[in-house]
Structures are given as C-alpha cells and as structure tokens.
Nucleic acid binder design. Structure first.
Lengths: 194, 194
DNA sequence: CATGGTTCTGAACGTTCAGTCCAAAACTTT
DNA sequence: AAAGTTTTGGACTGAACGTTCAGAACCATG
C-alpha cells in the first residue's frame, strides 16, 4: 500500500551515535548527520524529528544498553565477580580511547544545561553504582574482598575508577597505562591472599 | 600617547573561562563571550584574536594553574602526604560540581579533533601523574602506604579517581556520595594501622 | 588647545546553521 | 498497468554565527 523505507532505522541511529560521539551535540551539524547516516535532511526529519529529538533517541538507546551491560555483568559464579570487575575496567590492547563513551561526552557537554539529559545520565550512574555494589558483595562472599568493607563505597569507587579511566583515555593516555591503573584499582580493594 | 585599555585583561580571561566552562567551546557564541566579559566583539578580537585563540589562551592558563596546584601539593611534611591526597579528592560540602573543571570538559569535547588541545591536556595529566606518584612515595616513607606498592600505579590510580569524581560530579552526583568514595579510595590504598 | 596614536563600539558582511517544503521517484496493492 | 501512498533529495528560508571595519572616544604629548 505504500513505499517502504529504503534505510534501516537502527543503522541510521548507530551512524548518528558515532557522529555525536566524535563531534558532540553542538559540534555536529544536521548536514554532518545527513552525511554520516546517508540520509537526506528530509528523511532525517521525517524519521526522527529535529536534531535534539534525534540526539535524545541516540542517547536514550546508549544509556539503555549501558544499563543492560551492567545487569549482564552480575551473571556468573561469585568467585569470578572480582574478575568481572577487573575485566570491566580493563581495555583492549590496541584501543584508541579518544573516540570514547557517549555518556561521558554528553554529561560533560550538556548535563549542566539540560535537565532531561542530566536525569537520564544520573539514572544510568545509579544503575552502575548498584551493579558494582552487588559485584562487590559477591566478591565478599567469595572471600576476595574484606567482608567488613562497605560494599556501597567500594562499588562507587569502582564506578569512579571506570569513569576516570574513560576521561584519561579521551585525553590520549595509552592502553598499557590504563590497564596498569585498572589492575592497581582492583588489587587495592582486594583482600590479600591469606 | 594613546587611549588606555578600559578593561582588565585578566578579568576578561576569567569571565571567558567561566563561560567556556559552562557552555563549552562549540556551545559558546562570541556574543555570549561578549556578554560574559562585558567587552564588545571588536575589543575581544582586538585583544585576543579570534574565538579559537581566546579559547587556547583560556585553556593554557587553566592548565598552567593546574600544573602549579600539582606542584604546590608536594609541599609539606611527609606524614601529611596522604592527607593532602585525601584533601585533593574531597570536595566542599555545598559544592555543585555540575559547573566543573575546564580540563575535563575540554578534553571530552575537543581532544579527539584538536591535536593542540590534546597535547596540552596530556601534558597536564603527566604533571598530575608525577605529582601524585611523589605524594605516594612521601606517604610510603611516612609509613602510611605499603612500601612494597608501586608508587607509579598508585599515583595514577589517585589521578584516575580524581577524574572519575569530576565526571560523577558533572552528572549531578551529590557531594556526600563523592566524599564517601574519595575516602574509600584513600583508605583502600593506605596501609592498615599496625 | 590641537595633534597623533590607540582603543572602543556597534553596525554590517558573508557564511553556516536548523528546519521547511515540494516535485519527482519508488514501491505496494488492486 | 494504474492508482495511491510514502520516501527522497535538494533547493529554500530566516536566524544565528564568526569576523571585519569605519568612525567615535579617549589619553598623552607638544
């Protein structure tokens, strides 16, 4: 009954995410988005509304997948919980972190001005806090972290370390240095082997 | 022999820094800068060159003062070194961190695209690494940190924690939570009292 | 007071921006 | 194959952008 879309909406959103991740919200023009997605402006506006709506869509999707990742990390045997935290902090060897996390880039650029963005970021950070706290508790039960320690504070510390590593990566600090710090972070909250 | 400047250049740079800190590079228009500094556009261009040159000036000054702060933190008795690290991580109580550090905002926004910015950021991070490593070594000599630990890795970990706290603050995480994490960070690298 | 040199000001310039619009193409259904 | 609907791409618009510039304002000197 009607002409179907020539493009895949999901692919377009991913292309837009890459573009926004590189050049930020204010640094990205609608023409940039048109080029990145391969869609003309007309199609872009028809499918997603204006630039801000497209950004919100991209950001929402990114946060949702971050939330899902946090939930997935909880799965697994308790005596590997500390390793899962370590793996989360570590970074693949050839990794160029300057093209980094959209959550970090967005909160830095927009959280101060835009309450919708600020609230969505905060919600994802809360999810991360919770996930890490639970992983710390798992590691405590497995005897890898001092059971007397405060799991909420240590979980928050892991999240903080993760965000700090992300910030350093954006500045161009090398993967080897980042991983050394990641290991130091985990080792310093781990219980010495008796 | 000539009409003197009506404005104080240093004040103008500080006003521009506040503006850039809030709205970022691409999010700040020259009209915004004109309003923030109280200077007309012509004066701004006369005094600092174009928008990018003004930004570089502001950023350079910010990084230089961060470097100076890192050096200043080294001064003091060695048995207070760990406390100086703690104080650096902690945040004043009523603090609203969403108006945050220009270094963080700038690396997030521009390091990917602009090599000059990237190199300047990296240089300041190196200074921070060095400063924290030395403070860790001081604390080791004072017996507050295990002398067998790797001061380079622990110094890097403290810097990372600082950047992570900054990122969380930008997202709107409260001062109380931030300080709890800061304390956990220091406590976890400190040697238990014998 | 007049001159010369510098700074300040705001209007004006060309460019780029986000967003609109529509004729033509593309596709499905009948 | 014809009708009907949606997509598409690019020309278009007014506003906002960074930048420039001519003239007014100003101070120190002669």
């Amino acid at each position: 009954m009607a002409r179907p879309r020539k493009f895949d909406e999901q692919e377009a959103v991913e292309a837009a995410r890459r573009q926004f991740s590189e050049t930020g919200y204010h640094g990205t023009s609608v023409d940039d988005l048109s080029r990145a997605t391969g869609l003309s402006k007309g199609s872009l506006y028809g499918a997603f509304g204006d630039k801000e709506a497209l950004f919100q869509h991209v950001f929402e999707e990114y946060c949702t997948s971050a939330d899902a990742g946090a939930a997935a990390r909880l799965e697994g045997p308790e005596d590997e919980a500390l390793d899962r935290l370590r793996q989360w902090l570590r970074v693949p060897e050839g990794f160029d972190g300057r093209l980094g996390c959209l959550l970090a880039k967005t909160t830095a650029e927009l959280a101060w001005q835009n309450d919708t963005i600020a609230n969505r970021s905060l919600a994802t950070f809360d999810t991360l806090f919770d996930s890490c706290r639970q992983l710390v508790e798992q590691a405590q039960r497995a005897g890898h972290i001092d059971p007397a320690a405060d799991p909420e504070a240590l979980g928050g510390l892991v999240v903080t370390t993760h965000r700090g590593l992300e910030a350093l990566a954006k500045a161009g600090v090398g993967a080897q240095t980042l991983n050394r710090i990641a290991d130091a972070a985990i080792d310093s909250i781990a219980q010495p082997i008796p």
